[in-house]
């Protein structure tokens, strides 16, 4: 399986990133290099190994259902590039997610 320039364009679009044609070519090459390395790992037989989702062996890290104060409205909005006195403001987005 090799990565094409279309794959790179799709991933860029999903990440809302824009690249020059040269960058796209470079990334296509780099993606393929990385996957080629992964192919090497694929030579190992892992059919009897459970997939690992976490490298640290923690489990059930839970907190009790207790409310604690967070930020005030003023603090929450403090660093927003666009806001009014109550809301964050973003360029008009129409339609559902």
């Amino acid at each position: 399986m090799s990565v094409t320039i279309q794959d790179v364009e799709k991933i860029a679009a999903l990440a809302r990133l824009e690249f020059t044609p040269e960058e796209k070519e470079k990334f296509t090459r780099q993606f393929n290099d990385i996957l080629a390395y992964m192919e090497k790992l694929n030579q190992l037989d892992t059919s009897n190994v459970e997939p690992l989702s976490h490298v640290i062996e923690l489990k059930n890290v839970l907190r009790e259902d207790v409310v604690k104060p967070g930020l005030t409205q003023e603090q929450a909005l403090q660093n927003a590039p666009a806001k009014d006195d109550k809301f964050f403001k973003v360029p008009k987005v129409i339609g559902e997610k």
Binding site: V66, V67, G70, L71, Q73, K86, F87, F88
Partner: peptide, 27 residues
């Protein structure tokens, strides 16, 4: 109907001032 949010301790209370039940985690 939990009292606090799923992954932080902010209140889930309905009808509060906009952007007042928030913290660095849920933001």
């Amino acid at each position: 109907l939990t009292k606090s949010k799923a992954f932080c301790s902010c209140s889930t209370e309905f009808g509060r001032e906009p952007n007042s039940n928030v913290c660095p985690v849920c933001l």
